[in-house]
Every structure is written in structure tokens, then in C-alpha cells.
Write a protein that binds this DNA or RNA. Structure first.
Lengths: 213, 213
DNA sequence: CTCCTTTGCTACACAGGTGTAGCAACACAG
DNA sequence: CTGTGTTGCTACACCTGTGTAGCAAAGGAG
């Protein structure tokens, strides 16, 4: 039986700005992952935090700033993980096995994904509902990574040789497969593990030797 | 200067049911491809056809029926193209080169995609805005295709041998790469052509010989 | 030329979301 | 225990989209 007189809502616990901000972003992310980016509304996020809309508008200019914050957060986290794990291109005289270097890089990537699935879901699931400008930003980061991978592969091919594959397509193929593996890890973490992908990767690389004359 | 008296809207050209239906679906598809599935509104589709909402509701129960119609249409077209082009698994005694069979299949797929890009965009761009049930249907078709591909590869590996790759991961890798190539074709048809992918594919298959003891 | 069916239009009620103005409660310094 | 600033709340105006009821125009059958 509803109250006749309008009862004032019990005040939510007061939080310092930064903490509230983080809480809101976390809630937004949860909604985005459960029901898609287009389902992230200022109202919904506020409710999820037991708070009202003006609180959100106090910390974000508008809905799209909220979404931007969400993407930023995921991007920074993801990039921070990658920066540590991804191998840089060795010099021409370094004594490193190219195949093992690549394998290690891919293992690092997949391990990072498996270790912080929600962050990576934001990156790897194309956020259709988000403003197009953000999809563009994610693609920009993809290009950066792709270029780095390309450098690594070029170095490796120069070092050890390989079949006469178009190097651009080769880099893209490796990239696509790595992202595909990452998506499988995210989709069903119980079924998929990192190591089988690594084995697959190593075996394939072994097969890709220079053509025998 | 706006009319003071409410002018009746000029009647749109009257169309027979089926034709109007097709027109509406086409308009819905265009909107979905330009601005995402979530941006497909009954109102928007009606306007795009120079018509009012009740006309749409006459042909589709509600918004989600409209979306379902759009997906159905793309799915049927895509499957019809594939049914013709995709090779069936040969018997154990057929005299076919496995590599060339696979290459021909992939070429058929990519050619179909390049030849009817809008239809395939609907399939290959995960429609986040669409009801989840539809994403599920597209994934179902993916599974069917994946299973077929798996059959083809198993037959090929039995016939010609290959490196000791996990056959499930191998099938998924081929599938992922083929879809990746298709997405590139859709993304920038001027830059990407079918044949370079085919060359890449053939070269890679040649490298994937049985391990030499 | 008149019916009458088919196709389309106007108008409404409603739902859910955005963004803002102004007030109320809390919590901490003094 | 009393300011006083910060954090949060209520209430409103507005917009866009949904779905429906009932009327108006078109155009072919007779």
C-alpha cells in the first residue's frame, strides 16, 4: 500500500567526487555489457547507484560525456596492461627467437584479456550504441597495435625467413586471430583457455618456414 | 514561412502490399547500416519512405517485427548465395585437390560478399541494437557454416595430411580469417580486392604440410 | 459514373529519456 | 553546538518515439 504523503527519499551515502565518479562509470559499464551501450541512460546509471540524475550531471556534462568516460577508462586500463606485456621490436643484433617472441606477446595479450574480462569486453565488442567518434578511437588504437605487430613480424621474417606471404595481410591475419581468440576467451571462459591457443600458434609458426627451393 | 491552416499531406504513391513491404525493409536496412540498428525507428522508416507510421504498422506488428523482417531478408539472401557457391564435402574417393577446393570455397564466399555488400553488412556487423534473439539467430547460422567448414577441413586433412593442429581451432581460424577478409572488403571496397586474400590463403595452405619426420 | 475496398492520413494518449532550477539534508570546522 | 559549504533530492519542461482509433482519398469493378 503506497504512502499517501510523498515521502522524501532517504539520502544515499555521500561520497567524495572521485569515488562517486568511479562508481557511476562502473555501473555504466555493467549496464553496457549486459544490455548494450545504447541501453546506458543517465537515469539508469543513477538508479543503479541508488542516486538521482542531477548527481550524474554534476560529474558528467551529458550522456555522451558519461559514455566517453567509460570508454576512456577501459582504454587506459587496457593500454596500461598492454604496455607492460607487449614485447618491443628487438634490434637486428639481439639474440631472440622470433617465434618465441611473438608467442610470448600473444600469450601476454590473451592472459591480460582473461585476467580483466570486463575491461576488454568494452574494447573488443564493437559498441554500436556509442557515439561513432568512440568507435573511431578504438579503431585508432587498433591501428597502433597493428603497426607495432607489423614491425615485430617484419623483424622476425627478416631474421628467420618464411613463405612469401604479403606482410600486411600476414600481420592482419595474426591480429585478427589474436582478437578472435580473445573473443572466445571472453565469450565462454569455462570452455576456452589460453594455452591451447598458444600451442596452435606455435605449431602454425613452425610450419611457416621459408619455401624450400 | 509556415502555413497557418493545417495543410493535408499530399498522399504518397499507393503501392501494393508486397512492394511497400520491400520498400520499408530496404529503408530500414539503409538506416541500420548508416546509423546502427538501434537507430531504426518505425517513425524514421516511415518518413524515409515518405509515408506515415500507421502504414508501417499495417505491415509489421511492431518495431521488433520490422527488425526481424530485416534480419530474415538478409539471412535468406545470404544463405541463398552461399548454398550455390559453397562446396559440399567430397566422398573419400572423389578426385579433388583439398587445397583448391577450400580456396574455391573461400573465393566464392568473398565474391558473394563483395557482390552484395549491404546484405552481408547486416550479417557481419554484429547488430547490437537488435533484439538479442536475432544476434542468437545469426550466431546459429555461423555455427552451421562452421560445422560445414569443419567437415571440409577434416576431409582435407585426412586426404593430404597437415601439421598437428587442433582441428577445431583450425576450422575456427579459417572461419575467423575468412570473416575478417570479408569485413575488410566491406569496409573499404576500393582498397581491398578478393584475389590478394586468395593468394594469401593458397600460400599459407601450401606451407601447412605434414611435419617432416 | 458510382460504389466500395484498399491504402494512406490525422490526432491522440502514453512511455521513457534528457537536462535544469531551486531546495533540503548532511557532515565537518570552529 | 552552530555555521556553512558540499552533496544529493524534487519537480518541471521538453523531446522523441510507440502504438491505436477513426477518418479521407484513390482508383478499379460493375
Amino acid at each position: 500500500m503506497p504512502q499517501a504523503s510523498p515521502v522524501r527519499k532517504r539520502y544515499a551515502a555521500r561520497l567524495p567526487t572521485e569515488q562517486r565518479r568511479e562508481q557511476l562509470l562502473q555501473a555504466a559499464q555493467t549496464i553496457a555489457l549486459e544490455r548494450g551501450f545504447h541501453a546506458v541512460s543517465v537515469d539508469g546509471v543513477a538508479k543503479a547507484c541508488g542516486v538521482t540524475r542531477p548527481v550524474v550531471y554534476g560529474l558528467f556534462d551529458d550522456r555522451s560525456a558519461l559514455l566517453a568516460g567509460l570508454l576512456d577508462r577501459a582504454e587506459h586500463r587496457a593500454m596500461a596492461e598492454l604496455a607492460v606485456l607487449f614485447p618491443s621490436v628487438p634490434g637486428p643484433d639481439d639474440d631472440v627467437d622470433p617465434d618465441e617472441l611473438l608467442v610470448a606477446g600473444i600469450r601476454g595479450y590473451l592472459t591480460a584479456v582473461a585476467g580483466d574480462p570486463d575491461t576488454w569486453r568494452v574494447i573488443l565488442v564493437p559498441p554500436e550504441g556509442a557515439p561513432p567518434e568512440m568507435a573511431e578511437r578504438v579503431n585508432g588504437q587498433r591501428r597502433v597495435l597493428l603497426r607495432h605487430l607489423r614491425g615485430l613480424l617484419d623483424w622476425g621474417l627478416a631474421r628467420r625467413g618464411g613463405p612469401g606471404l604479403d606482410p600486411d595481410l600476414f600481420a592482419r591475419a595474426v591480429f585478427t586471430l589474436a582478437e578472435g581468440a580473445a573473443r572466445l576467451l571472453l565469450e565462454d571462459p569455462d570452455r576456452w583457455q589460453v594455452e591451447p591457443f598458444i600451442d596452435f600458434c606455435r605449431t602454425t609458426l613452425q610450419a611457416l618456414q621459408p619455401v624450400r627451393a
